[in-house]
Write a protein that binds this DNA or RNA. Structure first.
Lengths: 238, 238
DNA sequence: AAGCGCGGTAAAGTTTTGTAAAGAGCTACT
DNA sequence: AGTAGCTCTTTACAAAACTTTACCGCGCTT
């Protein structure tokens, strides 16, 4: 799955910032990979796996401009440059060597998202809209983020908004345990508090709606003391 | 229709600033026409005589956003927006309704030139593939910005102006969640206030007019606590 | 096997959204 | 000007979605 429409590469040596951005972009429906130096950035950027690169100009090793120049020498992938506040010169240079946009640091994450969308909108070929109709499909459950609809065994399942997000996260990590904390963060976008049972509640509802908890077929497993997991299609199941 | 490659239109009510910019751009090889209000700006921008428009958001008469929106409804001419310093909201709104770039005032004329060049560079070669598609078509809904008309299943749908803008924004982002705040910004051209329910109201009306909310076929989905999303048709098939 | 901690879930409580209806601002026509 | 007809905004209340509480049961530890 190459160059999925919302796959973004971030090249910045500030690990914390990367984490923050990641969280934010995830919430907005992008997936994201972060690397922290120019070498790797260049390599990843040319891997054709990303729709766009967010590139800091201040980098250890090769600096951002150099990375950009090298990217441009072989690729037209959209690049959004992060520059230091007030460095007019950087911005001008950046645009001149082929950045698609820049954003001065520190920035408002909302603006980053808006700009990424703007760039993608204008660089995406007309119909690109439906490049790969991404559907998460595990066992007899199918979830389509673009329509926010879910099918189980071909039948539509009516989920609320939180339930949908919850199932989406679990499906993306199907076969792997997802901690309560991550679920709270990702699904409810808030911090996890010790006695928060809300997620359990939602899991319970999703289970019921998926027709779970009968004898053999529970889709969502509980991992005691840790979290939940969407079970991979165990065998040739029906 | 000339549309000579370096013919630039500046729309700004500050006459002195226009003169300054004119002088500067001339020196850089551009020719330039300046007008000082939204009406004229719009008219000129649509005259097909310019390669690019530099548009101030603060204008007497129609404001810059509205001008931009109207330009975008029929033309994909590149637009660089001039915003007040620090108005993140303006910049974001601008990009959302289709500006190609923005520059905060007061600006460095060299940067203006660099940005104009950058925009021209990236819009020139791909001009066919980028910009505004003539018709937005998602599932059984078709919206034509040029005539401001909407069809559903081939039948005309009568929308008010706000409703139309709302649907347009949602369609452009079909398959993705658009936050309430972004909708207020882009559709109503104002800042989002905590208890503003106006957007909900409009969504409700658009839904009804699209014949939504019946069984499975609701076009506009609610994402609680976040915003709305126009569902892609996708569907079965896999 | 009793105690404890953790998870399931019904039900009560809170917050957010849907939408009818009333109000406010415009425009056009009389 | 006065009024009728729109459109957009605000208000208000009902409904839906989400959170918290509370109680129950299960399985692990002692």
């Amino acid at each position: 799955m190459n160059r999925s429409m919302d796959h973004v590469l971030v090249v910045d040596d500030d690990v914390e910032l990367c984490a923050l951005v990641q969280e934010y972009l995830r919430a907005e429906g992008f997936s994201l990979k972060a690397v922290h130096d120019g070498e790797q950035g260049l390599q990843q950027a040319l891997s054709k796996e990303y729709a766009l690169v967010v590139l800091d100009v201040m980098l250890p090793g090769i600096n951002g401009f150099e990375v950009l120049r090298r990217i441009r020498s072989v690729s037209k992938i959209p690049v959004l440059l992060l520059t230091a506040r007030g460095e007019d010169v950087d911005r001008i240079v950046g645009l001149e060597i082929g950045a698609d946009d820049y954003l001065p640091k520190p920035f408002n994450p909302r603006e980053l998202v808006a700009r990424i969308r703007a760039i993608l909108r204008r660089t995406q070929p007309v119909s690109a809209a439906d490049g790969v109709p991404e559907v998460l499909s595990v066992g007899d459950v199918e979830l389509d983020p673009a329509t926010r609809s879910v099918l189980r065994a071909g039948q539509p399942v009516d989920l609320t908004s939180v339930e949908f997000n919850l199932l989406e996260v679990l499906l993306r990590e199907a076969g792997r345990v997802v901690t309560r904390e991550r679920l709270v963060n990702a699904v409810l976008s808030r911090k996890f508090m010790p006695f928060d049972r809300s997620i359990d509640m939602h899991v319970s509802k999703v289970r019921r709606k998926l027709g779970d908890s009968e004898e053999d077929g529970d889709h969502i497993k509980t991992i005691r003391g840790v979290g939940y997991m969407f079970a991979r299609p165990a065998k040739a199941k029906k």
